[in-house]
Amino acid sequence: MLLLAIDTTTMVCSVAVGEEGNLMAEYLLNINKTHSQRLMPLIISLLKDSDINRKQLEGIAVAVGPGSFTGIRIGVSTARGLAQGLGIPLIGVNTLEALAGVGASYPGLLCPLLDARRNQVYTSVYRGGGADLEEVEPPQAISLANLSRKLMSYGEEILFLGDNLPAFRKILKPALTDYYREMPFSASLNHASSVLLRAFVNWNKKGATPLYALNPFYLRLPEAQRRLLERQKGVEE
């Protein structure tokens, strides 16, 4: 099964193509420019350079978040447009799972971290060691201080991944002492090749998502809605 994979949910814009989860080609830009202008040209070059005709594609895998709201939407709407036009299925992959997937062979706890602003990170915890990632902590937005407390209770080494590690390390390393491990930077970026592999693994387990059921995973409500809910709660109390 020939899959095209897309990840635009973070600063990185990455696309990959592969057969049965085996990577054939991957392009990655980490240049902090808008994904909207670069994503389609990147996909076109990727397929051209790999001698693949768009009509040969059998599915589109896409990272659905959490991450940048705008980035998520550019990736998901592009994936949905391609799937609709080509008449092929879609497979959504959680961005945190894809990031953890970069270190899937690590036989211990994996903790992908994405900047969620408002002094929080988007994170989840997986146990690696093979193709399957076992979810230990579900995706959540949490402060680094609360996260460290939670992770200390596991009492084992944790491998952190993510493009913001240099900033997060300052808090995590002192808090977690000897349990702190980190992935080297270049491997710590969001790679579409990892979305490709996770999509393939999940596909075998759960199958594809119907086109219109593939929705973004924002993890957070829009700010205006959150404030409205808080006000309503205040009124009730």
Partner: peptide, 14 residues
């Protein structure tokens, strides 16, 4: 961006 991304992907696919 939703319309633009969709239109770009759809026009390329077709």
């Amino acid at each position: 961006l939703v319309g633009v991304s969709t239109a770009k992907a759809l026009s390329y696919a077709l």
